[in-house]
Design a binder for these strands. Sequence first.
DNA 1: CTGAAAGCGCTAACAC
DNA 2: GTGTTAGCGCTTTCAG
Lengths: 348, 348
Amino acid sequence: MKKRVSIKDIAEKVGVSTALVSYVLNGKEREARVGQEIAKKIRKVAADLNYQPNLIARGLKFGRTNTLGLIVADISNPFFATLARSIELEAQKNGYTVLFGSSDEQLDKSQNLINTFLSRQVDGLIITPVAGSQSQIEELKTKGIPFVLMDRGFSDLETSVVVTDNHEAMYSAVKLLTDNGYRKIGMIAYDTPLTHMQDRIKGYKDALKDAGIRFQSKWLKKVPFEDYKERVARAVLQLIDKKSQPVDALVFATNSISVQALKIIHAQKLVVPDDLGIISFDESDAFEFFYTSITYIKQNLNEISKKAVQTLLKNINSVTPKVERVIVPSTIVVGVSSGKKLKEKVVV
Amino acid sequence: MKKRVSIKDIAEKVGVSTALVSYVLNGKEREARVGQEIAKKIRKVAADLNYQPNLIARGLKFGRTNTLGLIVADISNPFFATLARSIELEAQKNGYTVLFGSSDEQLDKSQNLINTFLSRQVDGLIITPVAGSQSQIEELKTKGIPFVLMDRGFSDLETSVVVTDNHEAMYSAVKLLTDNGYRKIGMIAYDTPLTHMQDRIKGYKDALKDAGIRFQSKWLKKVPFEDYKERVARAVLQLIDKKSQPVDALVFATNSISVQALKIIHAQKLVVPDDLGIISFDESDAFEFFYTSITYIKQNLNEISKKAVQTLLKNINSVTPKVERVIVPSTIVVGVSSGKKLKEKVVV
DNA sequence: CTGAAAGCGCTAACAC
DNA sequence: GTGTTAGCGCTTTCAG
């Protein structure tokens, strides 16, 4: 690779010091009262040489790189990819560039990414934290590194965080089902202590309670991230098992769970919503061709990312950063899958 | 943000020069013959202070940052997100971190990203180039910046590039259709001169020719990236129009086109494959619940990304980089949608 | 064995 | 008005 042209090259060519070049190129010729002639000359040579400032050098000088680190669970997951896209946009608007990495919900990968990004002197981090990573996050706090959690947080840790209204969203989803006559409502969620999941579960339970329905523990199935596919399949089969008081509706805590569950429901030839009402948290392309339209909670991903970047930048630019919790409202897109329950079901 | 701990802090604390610290921390104590005692002490203090090397400073020193720039069309598109994921993985394996950005198929955004990444002194670029960006790419060449194109390239430009076997893939897809008895095969593609699309189109035409079918220009519909949805819808309606010799099979050049087209086909109540054979280039989650399984060409995205990174790294590390064209084989996943055409169709 | 010092590219306080 | 220089954190040559 050829040597890139530096401020020094320009200085030599024009016959001035690098200082003058720097002043002129940063539009500070007024303050430094650089001569008109010389300024013009410098600009011309810079253009001729196709000069591009070295942001690495500038970063070293200023101790800030105008780079953000983004750690998501998995960038290939459309949910996170969509967040990444808006983050990129908002960051760019503010003159920042984004480094990214995927944690795969694994503690060691998360720690590695944090270390790598810090070594690269990012100005701040946007993180979808992994379960059990409190100590990693706390270290950021003690080190005074600006960061914001996104999508999920910890109940036992005071941090800036931007999330969806998980509780309300799931509450209103389940309420929609109870209002439509469903009484035995099951839920499949991921088995994690992270707040987004806990809040969704709480929303589900609270909605049942407010509808005067007594929650039954067998209705709630928690599956691990690892081989969630099999586990979701098993959970669905248990929940709809005819021999033991099957549920009449199901809510799914994420789109990945939904898609997998719908496959089983389809394979079992259950009719949605007549046999089983359905609501999903988040949408999926796969809903497109399911034989009936799926009711789902639509998070405002765009707003979440925007707020995440803005909150982070506020932190970066403030001398006394303060913890900020942002909750972004979601909407519910009503399809056929949560439709009114048939009152009288003919038992054959 | 608190001051991060530097080599200097360690040196002061131990009471040696920064040089020694540098040697020890880089495992070069042997060459520099640093004393055992002192080395141990340095290491201890470094650990105590939780020292993280400043890669920015190192980058400035070495003129290399161990950072790659990735420019895709749109990171929120699962296709590119999946590529990004594997690139991240392969880059990490080699000690690189990835900056990313989306070009939206737009020339100015592409140029902006290139500039930004170069200013940040990335060691190389992986680019899915935008139509008409030859000059941008050529400038990289003249500047001697290592880069590799991915997914698509230019027919009029000699560059390193990693792509799928677009021609063969589409050829064999169409051959599958002709072998199964389809004779009037249409195609919907994006309207772009980029090689991936041109190669797919050529594969389609060549397969027709080899099957003894004369290509009809009205069979090939090219739609622009912008509002492709409407345009695809219109194209499908034209191709299946009963009044004017409708096609009996369709191939789609990308998954986004496929999903949109299938929606229309579904809405029009056409039966796949009886009324219409279907093959898609690339898969989509949405195929999951289409009423019949879709035959599709499966690119080896993992291999493409891996090769892209490897080719780029070879370029970066070689004094005399050479242009390398890598073609990654794809497979065809056969579903029901391309099944044998019913010989005698009962006309009502 | 150890350390001073130069230099990567850039900026800004401070001389001249 | 204009230019010198120190220094950001790190590496490495060369002198002690």
